[in-house]
């Protein structure tokens, strides 16, 4: 349904502000994730440090969105599409905050072990990381443009990240068997790989919320998993 503006302008403005804040938070989280991945790709630890620092802003956005949502529920009693808009904002902000946290966590591990890492594993990490970044970007676009099909595509393609994670973990263990001295670095890398997989899961959660926001229905069936 295409929506007319509300009769009460201030209500319209409050809902618009909520949507804008989600988009801003999402853009910030995307940048955080990008800096984290690029830190490894470009072997530039300052990017990881920036990602860690930027997580503070992500956390502030989450609190701000929660306040906006509580105010809307208390003062406007939103209904139908407005209710979904409000509830979905709360849930999406929570998933975004987790993505920010996971990016920060990867960055912290990077600052600990440095960027001089076994190439075979970092290559896998980069590929999975870029795929997760694409998923986050796509799901944020689906929110911004109310694109149900894009949300469904994100939901369906998380399987690829799951499969990548499984094979990357196996490869990391195999590397370790041959290079026992790398144990500290590889252990950290295993956590980093797992974090990428979790980021994919949060993008999928957001996809479910976007689908609910647009249709009022829940995505049915079991999500494809690798």
């Amino acid at each position: 349904m295409s929506e007319k503006p509300h009769i009460v302008k201030s209500y319209e403005e409050q809902l618009q502000l909520l949507k804008d804040t989600i988009v801003k938070m999402g853009t910030g989280v995307e940048k955080q994730l990008e800096n984290t991945i690029q830190s490894l790709v470009k072997k530039d630890i300052s990017l990881a440090e920036k990602s860690i620092k930027d997580d503070e802003l992500t956390d502030k956005y989450e609190i701000n969105i929660e306040e906006q949502v509580v105010n809307l529920i208390a003062l406007r009693q939103p209904m139908a599409i407005d209710l979904r808009e409000t509830v979905v904002a709360l849930k999406v902000s929570s998933d975004l905050e987790r993505i920010g946290d996971l990016a920060k966590n990867i960055s912290k591990r990077l600052t600990k072990i440095g960027t001089d890492l076994p190439n075979d594993i970092t290559k896998n990490f980069e590929i999975a990381g870029l795929k997760a970044s694409k998923q986050v970007n796509a799901v944020l676009n689906s929110y911004l443009h109310r694109a149900k099909d894009t949300a469904e595509n994100v939901w369906n393609s998380d399987e690829e990240i799951d499969q990548m994670t499984n094979s990357n973990m196996e490869a990391a263990v195999k590397h370790l068997e041959k290079n026992k001295n790398d144990i500290q670095k590889v252990t950290q890398l295993l956590f980093m790989l797992k974090n990428i997989e979790r980021i994919g899961d949060h993008a999928t959660n957001i996809a479910e919320q976007v689908y609910f926001l647009i249709t009022g229905d829940y995505l049915e069936g079991d999500r494809p998993k690798g």
């Binding site: 349904m1 929506e3 007319k4 503006p5 509300h6 009769i7 009460v8 209500y11 939103p78 209904m79 139908a80 599409i81 407005d82 209710l83 979904r84 009022g216 229905d217």
Partner: peptide, 19 residues
């Protein structure tokens, strides 16, 4: 009706977009 009405007019009315 209040979470996900089928009709656009219903939605416009209950969300205060009528007129």
């Amino acid at each position: 009706i209040f979470k996900n009405p089928d009709n656009q007019q219903t939605q416009d009315y209950i969300t205060g977009r009528f007129g």
